[in-house]
């Protein structure tokens, strides 16, 4: 890399540590708040002298977080699987067969990306009510699949065009394999890197979704983590320690996944941006 004098290096290291400390502030406050007892009005900056994990048990129960975790996981897993299955298949046809129809369809998908999803809210809500899909996992799954499909197809199509050699498929075709057979047995395994990127981007977004979940999942039995948390905050805005405990528990799974798979999160984004 670069040649820095050791003095500059120390200065820059100090600067980096100060920035890191600044970025840790809200998390530190979150942790101290979540550990304080209900009547504890000491400064949020002071670490509580006697720990209270009671908040976590209370918040877990009252916000119905266990149920919310299951709902969020179901919606995220099914939506991500459907996105990868249908998205990769669609991108394959669109990238490999450049018929006029396919060019139009591809343009349609790219064009949809600029529509802000919320502008479709009013009629979409009506549609969901008419189909009897209010308060079902299905509506959240399908809605997230729709919202992410254009980006998924865009990423897969770019990857297929630039990195998958056509000769492989042609050889398999001669051996008598069907189009689907060729796609799933030969092409799909080669898409692994971009599948990882799609999986990470879409899962994080779907797991954290609030905008749509709040419209379609209002019943407590189907609430996701964000909806449950927003409701809990509404009821306990004076008991910040409980809300903090709930917020901490709700974010922890993604944080743990991120810390273990960091490389994929960051590399996928970096690779996508340089290519795109």
């Amino acid at each position: 890399m670069d040649q820095l004098s050791s003095r500059t290096k120390w200065l820059l290291t100090g600067l980096a540590l100060m920035i890191t400390a600044f970025h840790l502030i809200p998390f530190y406050i979150l942790i101290t708040t979540s550990l304080k007892k209900a009547g504890d009005f000491t400064s949020k900056w002071a670490f509580p002298s006697n720990f209270d994990t009671e908040n976590f048990a209370l918040a877990w129960e009252q916000a119905n977080l266990g149920n919310a975790f299951i709902n969020t996981a179901i919606i995220t897993v099914f939506a991500a699987v459907l996105l990868i299955f249908f998205g990769s298949m669609a991108a394959y046809a669109l990238a490999r067969r450049t018929t006029k129809l396919n060019k139009y369809v591809y343009m349609l998908f790219v064009g949809v990306m600029v529509i802000p999803p919320l502008t479709a809210l009013v009629p979409l809500y009506r549609l969901v009510v008419d189909f009897g899909m209010m308060n079902t996992h299905l509506v959240a799954i399908l809605n997230n699949v729709a919202a992410f499909m254009p980006l998924t197809i865009f990423l897969y199509a770019g990857f297929i065009r630039s990195t998958i050699p056509k000769e492989l498929e042609e050889a398999a075709k001669i051996d008598g394999a069907s189009t689907l057979g060729v796609f799933f047995k030969i092409v799909f395994p080669l898409l692994k890197p971009i599948t990882a990127t799609v999986l990470i981007i879409s899962s994080v977004y779907i797991w954290n979704d609030y905008q749509f979940a709040i419209f379609f999942l209002q019943d407590s039995s189907v609430q996701t983590l964000t909806v449950a948390l927003a409701g809990f905050f509404g009821q306990n805005s004076s008991q910040l320690n409980l809300v903090a405990a709930a917020a901490l528990m709700a974010s922890l799974p993604m944080v743990i996944v991120f810390l273990f798979l960091q490389r994929y999160f960051i590399e996928g984004l970096a690779a996508g941006s340089v290519k795109g």
């Binding site: 249908f86 669609a90 394959y92 129809l101 399908l142 919202a147």
Partner: peptide
């Protein structure tokens, strides 16, 4: 020799039309 393989993207088109394009236009 080329076919569009339209059935491969039909499900994706349907879901985007139903959940984004139709509601957007109806809006």
């Amino acid at each position: 020799r080329e076919s569009s393989l339209w059935w491969m993207y039909l499900p994706s088109v349907l879901i985007v039309v139903l959940f984004i394009i139709y509601p957007f236009l109806d809006g």
